Simulated assay, not measured.
Amino acid sequence: MKHLDINQIKEIIPHRHPFLLLDAIEDYEPGEYAVGYKCVTYREDFFAGHFPQEPVMPGVLTVEALAQTGAVAILSLPENKGKTAYFGAINKCKFKGKVVPGDKLRLETRIIKKKGPVGIGEASASVDGKVVVQAELTFMVN
Rank of each mutant, 00 (worst) to 15 (best):
G121F: 06
Y37E: 14
E29F: 00
P58W: 01
A24Y: 04
P30I: 04
E26A: 12
L75E: 01
E29M: 00
F51S: 15
I13N: 00
K98M: 13
T62K: 03
V133Q: 05
V141Y: 00
G119V: 11
E122M: 15
E136M: 12
E108V: 13
Y37F: 13
V100I: 15
K92F: 00
V63S: 06
A85K: 09
N80Y: 07
L4P: 03
M140T: 13
E44C: 07
Y42K: 08
F139K: 02
I111D: 01
D103H: 04
F87T: 11
S76H: 01
K81H: 13
A48G: 00
F87C: 10
F87G: 10
H15Q: 10
V63R: 04
P18M: 07
L21I: 10
M1H: 11
P117E: 12
E11M: 08
E29P: 00
L105R: 04
T84L: 13
A73G: 12
Q8D: 10
L4C: 05
H3E: 08
P101N: 09
N80K: 14
P52H: 14
R106C: 13
A89H: 07
I90R: 05
L20A: 07
L75A: 07
Y37D: 03
P18D: 07
H3T: 13
Y37R: 14
N142Y: 13
Y86W: 08
D23K: 10
G119M: 12
L21H: 05
A65C: 13
K96S: 11
A123V: 12
L75C: 08
A89M: 14
V141T: 10
V132E: 02
M57A: 06
E32T: 07
L20V: 10
L66F: 06
V131T: 15
K38C: 11
E54L: 13
E122L: 15
Y28C: 04
S76Y: 02
P78I: 14
D103K: 00
V99M: 12
G129P: 07
N80L: 11
I90H: 03
I111E: 02
H3D: 01
P78K: 14
K83M: 12
L4V: 03
Y42N: 09
E79K: 15
K113G: 03
K115Q: 11
E108F: 04
P30M: 04
C39A: 08
D23M: 07
V131I: 13
A89E: 09
D27N: 09
D45M: 05
H3N: 06
K10D: 01
V99Q: 09
D27C: 04
T69L: 14
P55L: 09
E136Y: 08
T62N: 10
A123Y: 07
V127N: 09
Y86H: 11
G97S: 12
D5I: 11
Y42G: 10
K38H: 06
K92N: 05
A125V: 05
R106D: 02
A125W: 00
I111W: 01
K130V: 14
P117F: 02
Q53I: 09
T62H: 02
V100M: 14
L107M: 11
P14K: 06
D5P: 06
A123D: 04
A48Q: 14
C93F: 03
G102S: 11
T109Q: 03
E122R: 15
K115C: 12
V132H: 00
C39K: 15
V56T: 07
K10P: 01
G97D: 15
P58N: 01
M140D: 00
L105P: 05
